[in-house]
Amino acid sequence: MIEVDGLSKRYGGTVAVDDLSFTVRPGRVTGFLGPNGAGKSTTMRMMLDLDRPSGGRVRIDGRRYRDLDRPLLRVGALLEARSTHGGRSARQHLRWLARTNGIGEARVRAVLDQVGLADTGHRRTKGFSLGMGQRLGLAAALLGDPPVLLLDEPVNGLDPEGIVWLRALVRGLAAEGRTVLVSSHLMSEMALTAEHLVVIAHGRLLADTTVDEFVAEYAGSHVRITTPSPERLRAVLTSAGIRVGEGDGGVIEAHGVGADRVGELVAANGVVVHEIGARTASLEEAFMRLTGGERT
């Protein structure tokens, strides 16, 4: 469990993280969502004591990170910024990390296998692609078999196959009862991986809720109707007390109503329609709505 309590970080006059409080619980994937520059990476770095908070605190299973004995056995982290020396091979990088925390050589082999670097582990990381670098970062995070995992933008640089693999890995780790925090600026990715969401923008907490509740609350579902006589349809819907909007390409959107009711109304009034479709808005739209469309 990770507890963030009143966490703040200022760089000079710029506020990167502003009085942030939330809890990441074990057994589920928590998505840490926000636009680029929202303060996600800074928050995760403060969790690892890599950045000093200007205020507030972080506790991991009740303790400060720097007070953890052999921390790699407690917390595994994939950071966004590069943290390997190009002159070392993947295996050598994992080997020195393992030594610092008294982790045996068998784990080095196991995690190289697990992330699919068994055949390239002897190569110097200088020649690694972004995706291979991410896999090595994941191997480092998994090295101590830790109950808490912090993954900052883990899908960055992964190919489609790698992304599918990562989703399964992350969900599997949570299913084993681990605390898993995954940051992303991609809503669609979070929709597929996370069960719980912590949403921030400008360093402030916007939402701390389940994915389903988040969509229900912020997305606003509606019915989309395509018609050759939009004026008439508008009049029919409005007189029935339905809020009407206009979507892309002249599509009429009816809010707060089901497709069945819309169908009955157009039939009763003899309006010609070409298409009626119920639309459940996406996490992406919910996010856009919540952040006021500031992400472009």
Binding site: L48, L50, P71, S83, T100
Partner: peptide, 18 residues
């Protein structure tokens, strides 16, 4: 200095935070 120029310092301090 290699710790700083390569970024390894981040991994180093995550492994040995003190």
């Amino acid at each position: 200095s290699g710790e700083f120029t390569s970024g390894t310092i981040r991994a180093s301090l995550a492994a040995v935070p003190r």
